[in-house]
Design a protein around this nucleic acid. Structure first.
Lengths: 338, 338
DNA sequence: CAAGAAATGGCAAACGCTTGCCATGTGACC
DNA sequence: GGTCACATGGCAAGCGTTTGCCATTTCTTG
C-alpha cells in the first residue's frame, strides 16, 4: 500500500557505470568548468540513463548549503503577505532555491523560536514585518544571513516601502478634502512599519498644519475595527487612517453598524491595497505597496549574502515606491452644525 | 560583514562532554525509552549547557527522514488557499514537521516538476487542487506519500469538501427564489473540484427540474469575469453559479460595467467564501468550505502514511461539510417582459 | 625540446547523525 | 546459585555527497 522503497541510483552507481571516480561525477554536476567537457558529457549521459537525481540532503550535508531559504510572515492569511510570499516564491525558484514558509502568528516568541528551529535547515531567512527587536535580529544574523521586508535594521539587508512619500500623499489627499485633522488607528506596537507610518503621517501633518492623533494599538485585522471605531468616533474625528486595510475594512464595517456613513460622515484610509480593497463597500482609499516586488527583492538581497553567490543583480533600489489609490472611502470633510 | 561561521557543538561534542558514546546522545534525543532515564537526563543537561541543537540535515541523511513535508497549491495569492496553507502550517508544526510551500501556477507541468524537484527533499506531499491526472498522481505516490485536498483519487489519502450537499443547497436556494435555470461558469478543465461542482449542480438541478448549462472554462480569477459574463448574458441567464469566488467577483464587476444589476437582473453564486466575499459589492452568496480544516486534516492523513507514525488520529471524516452563506448577490428571478 | 603551468581525474577524508548488533550488567525466578 | 530475559550502553558501519590535495597528462613557452 505504501510507496515502494525501490533503491534509487546514487552518485556511486553512476560513477561505476561511467567508469570514473565518484568525485568526477559530483563535479560533472556542480563544477562544470572543473572537468573535461567530454568526460562531463559522458557522465551526464550515463546519469540520465540511470535516472540519477542527486540527493539534496546528502548534498547539503557535504557542502553545508541546503539551497533552501525560509520566509517568515506574521500571518499567512493576511492577503498583504500573499503578495510577498508570491514574489519570494518566484525569486527563490528563479535562484534554484526551495522556499519554506513560516507563520509567526504576529508573535515575537513564535518568531524567535521559528528562526531557531529552522536555522540549521536553511541557508538564510527573509523575515517580513519582523516583530523582533533590532538586537535580536542582529543576533540571529550572526548565525544566518537575513534579509528584512518592511523593517530597517542597521547592518541587515532590508527592503522597505517608501512611507515618507506615501504618508505625505495620504495627508495631502485628506487636506485637499478640507480635513483639518485625522486619527491614526495604530497596529501592533512592535510593528516597524506601523511606527514608520505614524512617523510619516505626523511629519506630513505638521507640514500641513494638520492635527494628528494616534489611538491603539489595535489588532491589524477585521476584528480590530470595533475598538478603533469606538475610540475614533468618541474623539469626533473626521478622518481615520488605519494601520492597514484589514483594520480599515473592519473600521468601515463598524462605522456602518453604528450608523455612520463613509465617506460622508467620516473618511477612511488604509495601507496595503490588499485584495478586497477595491470591492469592499465603499471601496477603500489606500496606500499601495509593491508587495510581490518586495518579496522578490528581499530574496535577491538574501541571495547576495549567501556563500557562492553567482548573481550580481544588486541594485540600490531597496526602497520601493508606494502610491495612493484613491477610491470611495474618502471625501470632503463633513460640515458640522456646532 | 557576513555571519561568523563559529563552529556549533555537534553530537560528538556532547558525547565527549557527557562521557558517553555518540549513540547514547543520539538516543537520548530520539529514543527516550531506549535509554536509562538518569543517563538521558544527564545527556540532555550537558547538551543544554553546550547549546547543542541537532543538525536536521545530518539527521535526515542518517535516518532517511527529513521531517519536512511539501504543500503544493495552484496559486498562493488565491485567498482560498490561504486557509489551506494556514491549516496545513499549524498541523505540520503540531506534528513537528517543517512545511515547504510550492506554487504550481495552475499548471500541470509546473506541478509535476515541483514534485520531482522536492521528492528527495521531503517526506511527503499534500497537494491541493491537483491538476495532475489520476495516473500521474498514483505514479508519484509510488515514490512519496501523498495526501490530496479537494481531489479524490483511488488509493490515495484524500480530504474533500461535501459538494453533493453543497451544490444541492445552492440549487435549492436558487429554486426558492424562482429561478428555473442557471448557468455554470466553469473553471480550469483539469480541476477536479470544478468537475465535482458541476456534477453536483447538474444532479441537483435535475432533481428540481431546473435547467443547467455550463460555459467555460474560464480563468478562476477576477480576470475571468468578463468572458464569463459575456457568454452568460448572451444566453439570457437569470443566475450564474461561478467556479469560485474570485471568478464570481470578477463576474459581478463585469456585470456592473455592462449595466446589469445584481441581484435584480441576475443572481450570482460563488464557491469558497473567500476573504472579501462578505464585503464585496453586493456581498456574495457562496458555498463555504472549511479550508483550514482541510489543510490540517490532509497533513494528518499524510502523517499516517509516513514511516514511524506515532499519532493515530485517523478518523473517518475526510469529507468535510460545506454550507451555503446567503448574502446579497442572489435574489428573486427577474420578471421578463417577453 | 625542456620546463613549468594548466587542466583533469582520483583518493579519501570529512559532514553529523542513525542504527543494527553485540557486550555487559541487572534482577527475576526457580 | 544458576539460568535467562531484559535493560542499557558502546562500536562501527553506513547515509550520499563534497572537496582538499595529489598524481598524471596535456599544453604552453622560451
Amino acid at each position: 500500500m505504501g510507496p515502494v522503497p525501490q533503491r534509487r541510483p546514487t552518485l556511486n552507481d553512476v560513477a561505476e557505470a561511467a567508469g570514473v571516480a565518484a568525485s568526477t561525477v559530483s563535479r560533472a554536476f556542480t563544477r562544470p568548468q572543473r572537468i573535461n567537457h567530454r568526460t562531463r558529457a559522458h557522465v551526464l549521459r550515463v546519469a540520465e540513463e540511470l535516472g540519477y537525481v542527486p540527493n539534496p540532503t546528502a548534498q547539503a550535508l557535504g557542502s553545508g548549503r541546503t539551497r533552501t531559504i525560509a520566509l517568515l510572515v506574521p500571518d499567512i492569511t493576511n492577503p498583504y503577505f500573499s503578495g510577498v510570499i508570491k514574489g519570494a516564491e518566484r525569486a527563490a525558484a528563479a535562484a534554484g532555491l526551495t522556499l519554506v514558509l513560516g507563520d509567526t502568528a504576529e508573535n515575537p516568541t513564535a518568531e524567535a523560536e521559528l528562526v531557531r528551529r529552522l536555522e540549521r535547515a536553511v541557508d538564510g531567512f527573509v523575515i517580513s514585518a519582523s516583530r523582533l527587536t533590532d538586537d535580536e535580529l542582529r543576533a540571529a544574523a550572526e548565525r544566518s544571513p537575513i534579509a528584512l521586508v518592511n523593517r530597517a535594521t542597521a547592518g541587515l539587508g532590508c527592503v522597505v516601502a517608501d512611507y515618507d512619500s506615501g504618508t505625505r500623499q495620504i495627508v495631502d489627499h485628506l487636506a485637499s478634502y478640507g480635513h483639518r485633522s485625522f486619527v491614526f488607528a495604530g497596529g501592533p506596537a512592535e510593528s516597524w512599519s506601523g511606527a514608520r507610518r505614524w512617523h510619516g503621517l505626523q511629519a506630513a501633518a505638521a507640514e500641513k498644519g494638520m492635527e494628528a492623533r494616534r489611538f491603539g494599538p489595535y489588532m491589524p485585522t477585521l476584528g480590530g475595527g470595533p475598538a478603533a471605531v469606538d475610540a475614533a468616533v468618541a474623539s469626533g474625528a473626521t478622518a481615520v487612517v488605519c494601520h492597514n486595510d484589514m483594520l480599515a475594512i473592519g473600521v468601515m464595517r463598524r462605522l456602518a453598524e453604528r450608523g455612520h456613513r463613509v465617506p460622508e460622515d467620516v473618511s477612511v484610509v488604509g495601507f496595503d491595497d490588499v485584495f478586497g480593497a477595491e470591492f469592499c463597500q465603499p471601496t477603500l482609499t489606500t496606500l499601495a505597496e509593491r508587495t510581490a516586488d518586495a518579496g522578490a527583492r528581499a530574496v535577491e538581497v538574501l541571495v547576495q549574502q549567501l556563500p557562492h553567490r553567482q548573481t550580481e543583480v544588486e541594485g540600490p533600489t531597496r526602497v520601493l515606491p508606494t502610491h495612493l489609490v484613491v477610491r470611495g472611502s474618502t471625501g470632503p470633510v463633513p460640515v458640522r452644525d456646532e
